[in-house]
């Protein structure tokens, strides 16, 4: 990127779309796919950093904080990326199952950018921590609220990408969570049966 390109602030467009126009985000991604996918990984890194800090300011920190903000940050970033990649893969598979075309790189890009609102968790929680007004409550509240905003961005992006209705996009978005929940329930059920069998035998 040239200096003039940097100064033009056009590189900020995907972030702007993610914040204001989720449908526009997909159109932007489809035009500049390669550049957008690389840039999109900044968002999980920023989210990992802000989430670690937001959690840390609420408690009493020890020297462990320095590990958390270095190695822990890398770990959190890798975990978010792993989660996003797996979710994108599952959403793409289910999308194809529902008759949509396979577009995993764009799905991954949308999911990454959709995490952008979560970056606001730190400044929001910081305000309530500083004024000492129910910081834990607002931490939980903003976590949920920003997750909802993040989900809305992703669903709108998916809806635009596959040119499907919002409800279908919602189904695709929720599918990895549903699959995971069913999987856990099934494993727990089998584990309980095995446990009972072990005790009875």
């Amino acid at each position: 990127m040239t200096i003039s390109g940097f100064k033009s602030l056009k590189w900020a467009d995907p972030f702007l779309y993610a914040a204001t126009d989720p449908r526009g985000l997909f159109r932007h991604i489809s035009l500049k796919e390669n550049r957008s996918i690389c840039l999109s990984f900044i968002v999980p890194a920023a989210v990992a950093l802000t989430e670690i800090l937001a959690f840390s300011i609420l408690g009493r920190e020890t020297g462990f904080f320095h590990y958390k903000i270095t190695y822990g940050l890398i770990l959190a970033f890798l975990f978010i990326v792993f989660k996003t990649v797996v979710s994108a893969a599952l959403m793409d598979s289910i999308g194809q199952f529902l008759g949509c075309s396979g577009r995993i790189s764009e799905t991954l890009c949308i999911l990454n950018y959709s995490l952008l609102p979560k970056c606001l968790l730190l400044p929001l929680v910081y305000i309530f921590k500083t004024v000492n007004f129910a910081p834990l409550f607002f931490y939980a509240f903003f976590t949920m609220a920003l997750f909802a905003r993040s989900a809305y961005t992703a669903i709108q992006g998916l809806s635009e990408m596959h040119t499907i209705h919002f409800s279908r996009a919602l189904l695709i978005y929720l599918s990895p969570g549903i699959l995971f929940a069913v999987f856990i329930l099934f494993i727990s059920f089998l584990a309980v049966i095995c446990g009972i069998g072990f005790i009875a035998g």
Binding site: F15, L16, L120, P123
Partner: peptide, 28 residues
């Protein structure tokens, strides 16, 4: 104009991250 607003929000985010790191480090 929107791009500039977004950059200002990014700057505030960076500032809050720096403040939080300094704050926690002093506490530690």
């Amino acid at each position: 104009r929107n791009r500039k607003i977004l950059i200002s929000i990014f700057a505030l985010l960076i500032l809050s991250v720096m403040l939080a790191i300094i704050d926690i480090s002093i506490k530690v």
